[in-house]
């Protein structure tokens, strides 16, 4: 038993899921979930903004896995769990009328969230973004603040905090500038490829 749990440290998510489906062993499920419980809990905190509520949600998502894993053929467990957890939080928010406003805000950003997490942005994947002409061309076309933040973050390897210090912008503003900048870059790159 101890040998098994030692080995399972090195097993992939897929192996664990396979094992769980085969033997319906709650221990295996616990091992799998423990890899992501931090992320799920953090995610719940982000949306539910309440520790106790988030803990309950994290437990309920765990219980959900026991049945859902059998029902779905999961290719990438992490991104599946991400979407499942977010949907669960959405349902929780819906239950609470007082949080309706937040839910609306959340729904406004829905398209962004539903982006396939596995489909990474070009700028996050290539080794030397500076040397890519196409990318550089698009970055030049970005608005001034977005341009500056993307350059500082991707080319000068500055942390959010350093960028905040340098630009005098709020850290959340920096993050959203990066986010929007990346989206514009993507659109720009796709257009260039079409041409």
């Amino acid at each position: 038993m101890f040998l098994k749990s030692k080995n399972s440290e090195d097993l992939s998510d897929q192996d664990l899921i396979f094992r769980y489906k085969e033997k319906n062993d709650p221990e295996v499920l616990g091992q799998l979930y423990s890899r992501y419980v931090v992320l799920v809990y953090g995610l719940c905190l982000k949306y539910l903004e309440d520790r106790e509520h988030s803990k309950d949600a994290a437990m309920q998502i765990f219980e959900l896995l026991a049945t859902e894993l059998h029902r779905h053929d999961i290719g990438n467990f992490k991104s599946w769990l991400y979407v499942t957890s977010k949907n669960f939080c959405l349902m929780e928010l819906r239950k609470q009328k007082s949080l309706r406003k937040k839910e609306e805000m959340w729904l406004m950003n829905q398209d962004e969230f539903m982006e396939n997490p596995q489909e990474l942005h070009l700028i996050d994947t290539i080794q030397n973004p500076e040397s890519d002409d196409l990318l550089n061309g698009c970055i030049e076309k970005l608005k001034k603040e977005q341009n500056r933040c993307v350059r500082l973050f991707y080319f000068e390897n500055k942390s959010y905090r350093q960028i905040t210090d340098e630009t005098g912008l709020d850290e959340k503003k920096v993050k959203s500038l990066l986010q929007n900048g990346k989206r514009n870059l993507k659109i720009c790159l796709e257009n260039k490829h079409v041409r």
Partner: peptide, 30 residues
């Protein structure tokens, strides 16, 4: 983005309590 969301959630909360919560969750799921 999963990690980003999680960290965002954590950064708004009291970090000393978060990790006891996580330990608790680990206990319960195992």
């Amino acid at each position: 983005p999963f990690l980003a969301d999680a960290v965002e959630g954590f950064s708004d909360a009291d970090s000393s309590l978060i990790f006891t919560d996580i330990a608790d969750l680990r206990n319960r799921t195992e």
